[in-house]
Write a protein that binds this DNA or RNA. Structure first.
Lengths: 283, 283
DNA sequence: TACAATTTTGAATAAATATTCCACTTGTAG
DNA sequence: CTACAAGTGGAATATTTATTCAAAATTGTA
């Protein structure tokens, strides 16, 4: 890494990169104990982010006060200020990106561009989170169940409806038999009896959860039908009446949630199911 | 996530998964404020990991003492003990991220995880592209036209249908009058005469472009109605019969395209229109 | 409607944590 | 060898932070 000129300036570092650069520059002229701090900090950034001065000092073999002097040498007010930089690094760069954009948003009033920029940033963050937090076991189970099912019944109202209607279209295009359950005129309940034991019910529901959807899933589950659900929290009432639950946290802006991340997962699901069916039909 | 029986035991959770499961089980019997804590914790685990009781309580809209009670309800000694679980999750995750990505890269393209990882990566790329290439003038014009319209008529078939049905729901929630045009039984054409001059027609269509949609847009445009279109190319046949055209390039994997980026744009559009209407109604 | 039980609040308190300060040590130049 | 500066340790302090508790509000019930 080439040395950063910013590190020579005297004001406090604002991100992890400039902090590292600053340490690199100053380490030459550091006395023994401060160098010990520097080495420990670079080797254990997580510990700095989460520990207390006493803990860290103990682990690094110095006194708590030395840790404070170390932070001050780097240009910080004290240890706590330096710690925040390490904490920010721990949470991830995606957060920083979001913060920058939302600051831009705050400065100008809700211009269309800033709203879009904000949603883009949040969606990217939400996608990262999906990659990290997705329960691959639940995903595999869902795909397997959907691949085996004779007919896939799809249910989702309000914000979840676009998700199931998309699956209806995409799975249909792949030759999978799907049945999009619509809620027109309260006849939904009776439909549960037409769901076969070889079928599967895919339910999408997000807070605030529609009672009709939960009821329907509950009845189907009671009849022994495989219920695969996609929801936004383990607190979802549909979780208790599902064979498998997949969780997805959507990007939001104020009270409004996107469907960006959910659609990404839905598409993957559809492709994976189509793929699994292809292998099945060949064997 | 599949339900965890361990959550029923009474000793303190030792990892993030069992903590989530515990919350899921206990949430039924939780009073209002504790439920608030539960929801906030599941939605903002990072904040719990790094914040102080005062900060977190403020953000979650409860008292610091309520946070402590929440932790105790889950079986912890106090808030600090619970916080350690969240911190552990945070550290584990940041190490896991690159690991998980490289594992996905190594595995073939047929495993569910790799399909999802692929879509996530492509969606993020596609979102970046949207931020860079979006035509802000067209975006502004579209928002302005939709904000002015008396009724917004929404049209989209196949893969575009989830987009307009989402707009129908979200705009409706904001008190905007929308009319979702459905194509059941070929009576669509006649509907064009019910579109007022003060109305707007929002059309979404992607390759392969449905002729019915293009025809309808063409007729409406001929009658002097504002036609705002969302499509995937300037070569789209709908572009020639539109007042304003917005372009979005969706993430794809083989022959299958997601709706991730499109939904991000649609959400922003809805929020911006809702916002613009609010200002209008106040003046 | 009134009573009991539960839940919430917010100030008081206890615990912990960061920071400061000064005596002491170490290294160094004259 | 001395004197001086720089660096260090650790107790003392100020600050922040978690936790407790009793009064008030809410909820459920007879």
């Amino acid at each position: 890494m080439t040395q950063n000129l910013d590190a020579l300036s005297t004001d406090t570092p604002t991100d992890y990169e400039s902090l590292k650069a600053r340490i690199g520059v100053l380490s030459d002229s550091m006395p023994k104990r401060l160098l010990q701090c520097a080495k420990y900090a670079l080797a254990n950034p997580d510990k700095i982010a989460l520990g207390t001065t006493a803990e860290i000092a103990g682990a690094a073999g110095v006194q708590p006060s030395t840790l404070v002097r170390f932070a001050q040498t780097l240009g910080f007010d004290g240890f706590s200020q330096m710690q925040q930089i390490f904490q920010g690094q721990l949470v991830g760069r995606s957060n920083e990106y979001t913060e920058r954009l939302s600051k831009i948003r705050e400065s100008g009033t809700n211009t269309p561009g800033s709203i879009l920029g904000n949603f883009i940033a949040r969606s990217k963050q939400s996608l990262d989170e999906l990659l990290l937090q997705v329960d691959t076991i639940a995903l595999d189970q869902t795909i397997e169940a959907l691949a085996k099912a004779e007919t896939i019944h799809l249910l989702g109202l309000r914000r979840a409806f676009p998700v199931v209607s998309y699956l209806h279209y995409t799975l249909g295009k792949m030759g999978v038999r799907t049945n999009l359950l619509e809620f027109t005129g309260g006849i939904l309940e009776e439909r549960v009896q037409f769901i076969n034991e070889n079928d599967a019910l895919f339910v999408a529901t997000f807070s605030p959860y529609s009672p009709e959807v939960v009821d329907f899933a509950s009845k189907a589950f009671g009849r022994g039908v495989k219920v695969l659900s996609l929801t936004d929290s383990v607190l979802s009432p549909v979780a208790r009446v599902s064979s498998t639950v997949m969780e997805v946290h959507e990007a939001e802006h104020g009270a409004f949630r996107s469907l960006s991340t959910t659609m990404c997962l839905a598409t993957s699901l559809a492709v994976a199911v189509g793929d699994a069916r292809k292998w099945k039909s060949l064997s």
